[in-house]
Amino acid sequence: MNALARVRELLRAELRQQAPYHLNLWHLLGGLTLFLLFLEITTGILLMVYYRPSADEAYESVFYIINDVQLGWLIHGIHGWGAQLFILLVLVHVLRVYFHEAYRERELNWVIGVVLLLVVGAFAFTGTLLVWDQKAFWGIDAVRRVIADVPVVGKAILYFLWGGTELDANALLRFYVFHVGLLPWVAIGLVMAHLYLVSRQGIFHRSGVGAQTSGQTYGDVALRGLLLVVLSFGIVLTLAVIFPVELAGRADPLVYQSVKPAWYFLPAYGLLKLVPKAAGVALASVGVLGLLAAPWLGRNSWVAWGLGMLGIAIIALLAAYGWRW
C-alpha cells in the first residue's frame, strides 16, 4: 500500500510539472498514435483467441469471429478500422514533425520514427493477408509477382517473407508470425526508444527552450490527450459499426480477382504501374532512403520545405495515378 501511494505521489508530481507553453494539439498526435497502438495490440490479442492461422481454417475462423463470437464483429472491426486511423495519424505525425522541422538536433529520433513508419506499413501488409479472403489473397499475390521480378535478390526475399515462391499455407503462417510474433516486439522496442529520446531531448521548439511559464502543467496536457483518446475511440467505434468488415469469399488460388491496394499503398502501386517493376522497386527504395536522410538533406529551411512539398506532390500524383488505373 505504501508503495502504491509512493507511485501515486510520483505520478502526481510529474503531472504538476510545468509544460512548455507552445505545446498544442499538434504535439499530441504522436501520443494519440500510442493509444491506437495500445488499441491494436489489445484487440489483436483478443482476435488471437479465435483466429486459426492455417489456409484451411483462416477464412472460416474469421467468419466465425464475425458471426458467432459475441461482439467478435466489433473487435474485428475496431482492429481493422483502428489500423486505418493508426496509419493516418502516423502519417500526419510524420508530416507535422517534418514541417515543424522538429527533426533538427534529433536526427536519431527521426530515423527511429521513419523505421517505425515502415514497421506500421509491414503491420498493415501482413495483417491484410490473415483474413485469407479473395481480396487479401490476390492483393498480396500481386506483390509476390512484383518481388519475384526483382533481379538477384527477389527470390531470396520471397523465400524469407513468403516461405517459398507460392502464396500458400506456408506464407500465411509466416505472415501471421511476423504480424503477431515479431513486429509487435520491434514496434514496442522502437516506440520506447522514440519516447525515451523525446523525454531526454525535450519537445522541440524553434525559438529555443520556452523558458517563460506557460501556465499549463503536464496534467492539463494529459487531460487534453484523454479527450482526444475518447474522441478517436468513438470514431473507430463508429466506423466499425457503420462500415462492418466485409469478406470477399474464401481465397481461391484458381480464381483470379483484380484487387486495388489499400489507400496507403497506392503511391507504390502507382509507381509500379508507371515504370518497369525493377526500376519501381529501386525508386521506392530511394524514396525511403531519402525520407531517412531528411534531417541531413533539409539543413536549410527553404530546401527542407521545397523537398517536402515536392515529395508530397510526387506521392500524391503517384497515388492518384494508382487510383485511376
Partner: peptide, 14 residues
Amino acid sequence: IMAYLFPPERRVFN
C-alpha cells in the same frame, strides 16, 4: 471483453 471471451454456442466452425 468478457462477453467476447465467453465461448460461443457453435464451437466447431469448420
